[in-house]
Amino acid sequence: MRIGLPRALLYHKYHMLWTTFLEECGFTTVVSPPTNRGILERGVSLAVDESCLPMKVLLGHIEALAGRCDAVFVPRQEAFERGEHLCVKFMGAYDIVRNTIPELRLITYDVNADHGVDERRSMIAMARSLGVPARVARRAYVLAEAAQHAHEVELARLQQSVADSPRSDDVRILVVGHSYNLADELIGAPILGYLRTLGAEVVTSDEVDKALARRTGAGMSPTMKWRYNKELLGSVELYRDMVDGIVFVVTFPCGPDSLMAELCARRVTGIPMTTLVLDELAGEAGTRTRLESFVDILRERRRRGHVRAVGA
């Protein structure tokens, strides 16, 4: 059986877990190609107009998998830990896809710590419903979880390497955004690429010790319940003294980010920040101009900082 994985939303975070698990269970996995204009346009036409950009991207990827696999994998996640939440689009993703493209066969698993539905049992139950023996599914989960863990340790190590590395003469910028935006070929990749073209050193909110970032984020904003926004907020605090400026990459009209960026701008001072709001109509020229002027501002600040340091 071939299972299709849309290269969207949490695929960018959990692809190690998912592909390892499905393959160890004996399935063949097919991943949709990196987002391109065609995929986005299909997603835009399938989605409810007011859906956020990542949801439109997801629907485009789902359609790109139709006919290329026997079933498409769309998990449903509400909470990984008690009292903590994901954005409601992750709660709705499975049912949105099911009602938007009814003829497609989907497979899913649910994670909801608030109701005692955990990832391990849920994934194993999904595999068993597809005829995988319990022993094989349990073993697949152990291997998948280990692969995912190793992947996350590697991301945390990247953060440490930023902290340890000597500063170059040019500016270093932290780009803060959800992994499904930053890792997307059409959304985040052009921004990261362009900043590098301008000569800036780029680090992202993804390269961080996630558990530490969540604890840090929770300390900065006690009532924020979204798991991934805690990570983003925490990354700002963990990196702020190592970078010259911060770029928020927000997709329109992201609910959690609209409030988090606001709070961040008010609570974190003393470092230049800018917010790029992207939608399916965003032109690259406008984004580039804004990034150029932001980098110019950071360079100017840095130059003045040097002058002050020499004068002192």
Binding site: V48, C52, C87, V88, K89, M91, N99, T100, P253
Partner: peptide, 11 residues
Amino acid sequence: GCMPEVSAMSV
């Protein structure tokens, strides 16, 4: 932009 209701809309 109310996400829970946008989800409901697709249904």
